[in-house]
Design a protein around this nucleic acid. Structure first.
Lengths: 206, 206
DNA sequence: AACCGTAGGTGTACAGTGTACACGTGTCAA
DNA sequence: TTGACACGTGTACACTGTACACCTACGGTT
């Protein structure tokens, strides 16, 4: 049933996934679903578990940095298979055992790398949603008018009001999500490494 | 009307904010709202604009790092006034002018600090949702049974399965959101600074 | 062999949601 | 006086999640 929900959401989108549509897909009456989940939230929890459970386990034995990096990128790969997954994960309010397994593994990787509990804690916070392999889109692409003249005029007004954004958008081509994501975790991981090497403690905060 | 929606959401929560409840609060029939917004999404867009428009402008003239930091923390302060704001912002699909103003200011700050367009671009991506002053909660607090014995037993099982997490949770006290947030942006900003100083380009990526 | 608990599926019903559409009503410019 | 326009109204519809009572089949105990 959870698998069915996941594939249905893949096909029709998460908004079109209702208890009724899922029931119909399974060939069962809507209320039958409630023998398996208490409510829709629990269904979504289960769907997240399916995806998180699909995260490929990283090769053991690597140093902490590679281990964390690999695991986070594996999570990303799993999430990217389902466009709706990020939004659903963000909306969860509690962590299931499957989710906790993922976090436990990350925390353990830092600890195995000799990180203090303190630094590990803050490092996890700093990773934020990136530990799930996604970050919110920073620049949503605005809707463009179809008419070419209108589009040019709009771009002109846009450039007048947001010169820095336009400069950036026109200089760099379309952005490579994967590159941006790796840029960010690497920046964070390098920062963690530096703090770790210099024996950073949260007490001695500037 | 947008202000009314914001204060109503503050009072009753974002889930209880329906077109009907908002209309009733204003003392008008539900469909009257549709003379001002095309649909509920546009209402939410407007509510975000109200909040983003409330961001205190940072003192001009500071160096890029202070400027970015101040602006992001100001955004955070504005967001924190409305518990539902983060979730709503995350769910937006396009950026309004008010939102673009905020981003433009951040991009401009990097550029004024001598950052290349390239590095600025990646820096913005790396900031991610933090440019809005929030990061998703990393560790949701699990529900605890009321009975003391049951709670102890549960903690035991929990510690057996998630030793690293429990170690972390018991060593560090409850976590200070603000501290974690500042830890993360500072880590990122320091990373940006380092890359900037060494003339980093995305071409020469390792 | 009779029994019963339990897991699962069914049917109906209800309150609540967003919003389409047709219809007022007032105000202000031509 | 007229007519455009901004704004409010009322009704109606399709859809949502889910409470509640009911049915059915199977596995183990007596």
């Amino acid at each position: 049933m959870l698998r069915a929900a996941v594939t249905l959401a893949d096909e029709v989108g998460i908004d079109a996934l209702s208890m009724r549509s899922l029931a119909q897909r399974i060939g069962v009456v809507p209320m039958a679903l409630y023998k398996h989940v208490a409510n829709k939230e629990e269904l979504l929890d289960g769907m997240v578990d399916v995806i998180v459970g699909d995260i490929d386990l990283p090769t053991p034995g690597a140093d902490w940095k590679a281990a964390v990096r690999e695991r986070v990128l594996a999570a990303r790969a799993s999430l990217l298979r389902h466009p709706w997954a990020a939004r659903v994960i963000e909306s969860r309010t509690s962590a299931s055992p499957v989710v906790l397994d993922h976090m436990e593994a990350l925390v353990a990787a830092f600890r195995a790398g000799g990180f203090s509990v303190d630094l590990t804690h803050h490092a996890m916070h700093a990773l934020g949603t990136r530990m799930w392999g996604f970050t919110q889109e920073v620049f949503p692409t605005p809707a463009q008018p179809a008419d070419a003249d209108a589009r040019a005029a709009m771009l002109g007004r846009f450039a007048a009001r947001y010169p820095s954004i336009v400069e950036m958008a026109s200089t760099t081509g379309g952005c490579d999500d994967q590159f941006e994501f790796e840029f960010a975790i690497d920046l964070l991981l390098d920062g963690f490494e530096r703090l770790h090497q210099q024996g950073w403690t949260s007490a001695e905060r500037s």
